[in-house]
Design a protein around this nucleic acid. Structure first.
Lengths: 221, 221
DNA sequence: TTTAAAATATGAGATATCTCACATTATTGT
DNA sequence: ACAATAATGTGAGATATCTCATATTTTAAA
C-alpha cells in the first residue's frame, strides 16, 4: 500500500468528492491510498483501526473456516465503505479483504474522528442505508443458496459476469464464491455445454442459448 | 393485533423504557401493540409503514421462493427492531414475520416522525450497530451453510435450543430453518441416535453424549 | 367428541455435491 | 528460456441431500 500525495492525491480527492457524506470537514482526516493488485487490505483476523471508502477498483471479501474451506463471500466494488463495522464495534475481528485490481481508497483515520463520525446524522444515515442493503443482500444470498442448486445460481452468475456473450471467470475463484467444489463447478459447466447453452472456446465459454440460460437464472428471481 | 391502552399501555411503557434511544420525545409517536401467537406482523410482499420495537416475545422471519420452497430465515427475539429497513428505503418489499408466542411491540408511527428519526444521531447510531450485527450474522450463517453439512449445523442448533438436556423443537419448522428437507433432518437425527449422541424419548430427544455433540458443533466455530 | 389438518415416521430410488488422485496446460518469476 | 506455481480437466467412488409415496400419530377446530 502506498499513500498518494501531492498531485495524485489532489486528483482523486477532486474526482470523488465525499464532503456531502459528512456534516463536518472530513478532509483533514483523509489519506488517499493505493493498493496493488492482489494486495490484502485487511488481514483476516486482525483488528483494523482504519475505515476505507473505496473509490476505484474491486476487491474480494474472504473468510477461512476451521475445516480449512475458504469462502469468497462477496466481490466488493467501488464506490463503497470497507471496515465500517469495526468503527461501530470495538475490536471486532475482521474478515480478509484482497484486491482484484489496483484499488484506490480514501482512508479515514477513525481514531482521530470517531466521536465526530458517531455524532453525525448525515454520515450515520448513509451508513444505515449501506448496512441495511448489506444485510438484505446477505440474507438473499443465504436463502438462495439454500433453496436452489448450482445449476440455477451459476446461470445467474454467468449472466451477471459475462461480457459480450463470453463467460471467462477463473474456475478456482468462482467455486469458492458459489460455495461448491471445483469438481462440481466443472461438472455443471460441462452439462451446460452438453445442453448447448454454452460452447467452450479457447478462452472462455460462449453463451449460445441466452433464453435457456435466462430461464434457469430466473428461477431464483 | 390489538392496541393496548390505559393501564396495560402504561405498564409496558414503564417496564421497557426506550427514551434513551432517541434524543427527542418519542412517546407521542408510540403505541403498544399485542399480537397473538401465530399472527402475522408483516405479510410477505407488503410495504409496511410502521416500525416495531419488540419488547416481549419471539417471532420468525420467513420468505417464500419462486419454486415454492419456504425458508425460515431467522428467529427474532425481543428486544429488537422489526421493519427498520423499510424506514430507510422507501417502499421496500418486506419479508414475512410471524409470531411464535404472544408478542408485545412498541409501534413507531414512522410517517409522523420519519424526519426526526433520520436526523437523530443517537437513534441512527443504535440502528447502525443493530444493522451491522444483522449483516454480520447473516454473513456467517451464509458461509457456515456453505461450508458444513447438516451434521455440524444441527449439532450446534441442538446445543442452542435444548433445555435441560432435552431437544424438542418441531421438525417441520427446523428443517425450514436449517434449509434441508424434512426427510434429511430425520435421517441425521436418527444417525445421532445410532451414534448414541441422542436418545429418542416420548417427548423430545435426550442428549446423552454432550461431549461428542459439542465436538460436532465446535467444528463450525 | 369427532373429524380434519398438521406433524411424525420410514422406505426406496434419484440427484447434487464431495473427495481424492492424477494428468495436462497456462502463467509467472528469475 | 526454464523451472516453479497456479489453473485446468477428468475419472471413480463416496456422501449429503432430495423427491415422492405412504402410514401413523398428534393436535386443533367444529
Amino acid at each position: 500500500m502506498q499513500i498518494l500525495t501531492g498531485e495524485a492525491r489532489q486528483y482523486y480527492i477532486k474526482k470523488y468528492p465525499i464532503d456531502d457524506f459528512f456534516s463536518f470537514d472530513i478532509y483533514p482526516y483523509l489519506e488517499v491510498c493505493q493498493f496493488d493488485k492482489g494486495e490484502w487490505i485487511f488481514q483476516e483476523g486482525s483488528y483494523p483501526d482504519t475505515m476505507y471508502y473505496m473509490i476505484e477498483g474491486k476487491t474480494k471479501l474472504y473468510m477461512t473456516h476451521k475445516n480449512g474451506k475458504v469462502s469468497l463471500i462477496e466481490y466488493l466494488e467501488a464506490p463503497r465503505f470497507m471496515g465500517e463495522i469495526e468503527l461501530l464495534n470495538e475490536a471486532r475481528y475482521t474478515k480478509g479483504i484482497q484486491t482484484v485490481t489496483t484499488t484506490i481508497c480514501l482512508s479515514i483515520a477513525t481514531q482521530a474522528c470517531k466521536e465526530k463520525l458517531l455524532a453525525d446524522a448525515l454520515f450515520l444515515r448513509r451508513l444505515c442505508v449501506f448496512l441495511g442493503e448489506k444485510a438484505t443482500t446477505m440474507t438473499s444470498k443465504y436463502t438462495q443458496n439454500q433453496a436452489y442448486p448450482l445449476e440455477n445460481r451459476l446461470a445467474a452468475f454467468i449472466q451477471l459476469s459475462s461480457d459480450q456473450g463470453i463467460y471467462k471467470e477463473k474456475h478456482t475463484e468462482i467455486c469458492e464464491y458459489l460455495g461448491v467444489s471445483y469438481r462440481h463447478l466443472l461438472y455443471v459447466l460441462a452439462q451446460f455445454c452438453e445442453e448447448k447453452i454454452l460452447e467452450k472456446q479457447k478462452h472462455g465459454y460462449h453463451i449460445i442459448d441466452e433464453r435457456r440460460l435466462n430461464q434457469l437464472a430466473q428461477e431464483i428471481q
